[in-house]
Amino acid sequence: MFTGIIETLGEVAGIREEGTNLHFTIRSDISRELKIDQSVAHNGVCLTVVALSEGMHTVTAIAETLQKTNLGLLRPGSKVNLERCMLMNGRLDGHIVQGHVDQTAMCVRRSELEGSWEYRFRYNSATGNITVEKGSVCINGISLTVVGSEEGEFSVFIIPYTFEHTNLQEVNEGDTVNIEFDIIGKYVARLTARSASV
């Protein structure tokens, strides 16, 4: 389980294809502290560390992961948001994040305001996923508060610290991001749909 509070930015040092899998080698400040088999969220996707080298770690994404996320769009030099799994005795500073991306969304607007940024994202609402105003959403692994919510679209505001310390600084209109919707909201939506069909 994760919190959506990004620890550091990693950089893709290499990508290797093996069948339908992609192996990503990431250079980061926390790579030397990782262990084989450890779970780390990469742009919000929970991946297992399979190899370590000096200042770098390698993870593998299978075909299903590549189809549901933006990891297949990564290239050498791409910035990646990284978060290790939460400690059970730690504070939950963000919200409950599983590291299981539900789908991708496209940035349809990025506006620089006086001291903050507004991002608006559009996603396929046919999947049944929803947002609610003042609810939580995870974008590229970042726990954020929804400030505007419509069917198939939502917006968030970004403070300077988040902008400077995550790869949202590189997200522009037309770019694809990973979305994990709030787990509590997903259960409520499923139960409501089930009750309505009875």
Rank of each mutant, 00 (worst) to 15 (best):
E54K: 11
P76G: 03
R91A: 13
S125C: 13
T60Y: 06
T104I: 10
N129R: 14
E17K: 10
E112T: 12
T48N: 01
S39C: 02
C85T: 14
L92H: 04
T65K: 07
A51I: 00
V49D: 00
M56H: 10
K68N: 11
D37P: 00
V12A: 12
G152A: 05
L87N: 15
R120I: 15
G141T: 03
Q38F: 01
G55Y: 09
T65D: 01
E11P: 01
V101A: 05
V97G: 09
H23Q: 11
L34Y: 07
A61H: 01
R91S: 10
Y119I: 10
V132G: 05
S116W: 12
V101W: 04
L87R: 15
T20Q: 13
V147Y: 08
N129A: 15
T104P: 08
E153V: 13
L82R: 03
G44E: 11
T145Y: 07
D37N: 13
I62E: 11
V146Q: 05
D102C: 13
L87Y: 14
R27T: 11
V137I: 14
S31Y: 01
M86A: 11
W117A: 10
N124S: 12
I30E: 08
G14T: 02
N43V: 03
S149K: 12
E17L: 06
I62P: 08
S39P: 06
L71Q: 01
N21A: 13
G10E: 03
E151G: 07
G19P: 05
D102F: 12
S125V: 12
S155K: 10
H100S: 03
S136D: 06
E112L: 14
R32D: 15
S136L: 02
H95A: 08
G148C: 13
D29H: 03
